[in-house]
């Protein structure tokens, strides 16, 4: 329960690129990826450890709110990290990245860490966007890049944690003003972790069958 920092993430990208599946895959390992089942979720939270510190990640999917300008704007601003997702089997989702990125840069605070994710790397046969292209795009725009698969869970963990590490580093460097919650970073409650070993609800990956 208790954490040193809470980072708020948002996931952005075209519909159907697997954002909510990535989110569920990361926040709740109990949902095993199965070939005939696609499950996603709009919100998830999970505790990770960086540098010996407990850090809680809260991830908000922004899907379905595109029609309201006020909402898109606000979401960007309230996040410390953003996962910009495209589908490697659909070229158009890659082509739209620029628009997404512009939006993000326009509305977010300048320190927001953005990670570029090419999802569905399991579907190598149907690949339309080369890994190099993703890398080049990321390099050009100063993003972290990774190809993931929500299906096989490949790199999913890394994607979220690397982003968190980057944010954490920025905090250490004093770039983020951690006292300002509008940045999407929150300092954890200072009280002692009395119920630390308790499962943290649906969010905890360790939830499975903790105590019986």
């Amino acid at each position: 329960m208790s954490y040193a920092y809470l980072f708020k993430y948002i996931i952005i990208g075209d519909t159907g690129v697997g954002k909510s599946c990535l989110l569920l895959q990361f926040t709740d390992k109990r949902f095993q990826p199965v070939h005939d089942l696609t499950i996603g979720v709009e919100f998830g939270a999970r505790m990770i450890t960086i540098d010996g510190k407990q850090i809680k990640l809260q991830i908000w999917d922004t899907a379905g709110q595109e029609s309201f300008r006020s909402i898109t704007r606000s979401y960007y601003r309230g996040a410390a990290g953003a996962l910009l997702v495209y589908d490697i089997t659909r070229r158009d989702t890659f082509n739209h990245l620029t628009t997404w990125l512009e939006d993000a840069r326009q509305h977010s605070n300048s320190n927001m860490v953005i990670m570029l994710i090419g999802n569905k790397s399991d579907l190598e046969a149907r690949r339309e966007v080369k890994k190099e292209e993703g890398e080049a795009f990321a390099r050009e725009h100063g993003l972290i890049f990774m190809e993931t698969s929500a299906k096989t869970a490949a790199n999913v963990e890394e994607a979220f944690i690397n982003t968190a590490k980057e944010i954490y580093q920025k905090i250490q460097d004093g770039v983020f003003d951690i006292n300002n919650e509008a940045n999407g970073i929150k300092i954890g409650p200072q009280h002692s972790p009395a119920n630390q070993n308790m499962p943290s609800g649906g969010g905890g990956g360790n939830q499975g069958g903790n105590c019986c």
């Binding site: 089942l37 696609t38 499962p199 649906g202 105590c211």
Partner: peptide, 24 residues
């Protein structure tokens, strides 16, 4: 206290099965 974790897992599994069922 005893059945809590079991119930949590049950509820979780239900969602999984229902979605699977909805799709299959």
């Amino acid at each position: 206290e005893q059945n809590r974790s079991q119930l949590v897992e049950t509820l979780r599994s239900i969602s999984e099965i229902l979605i699977w069922g909805d799709q299959n």
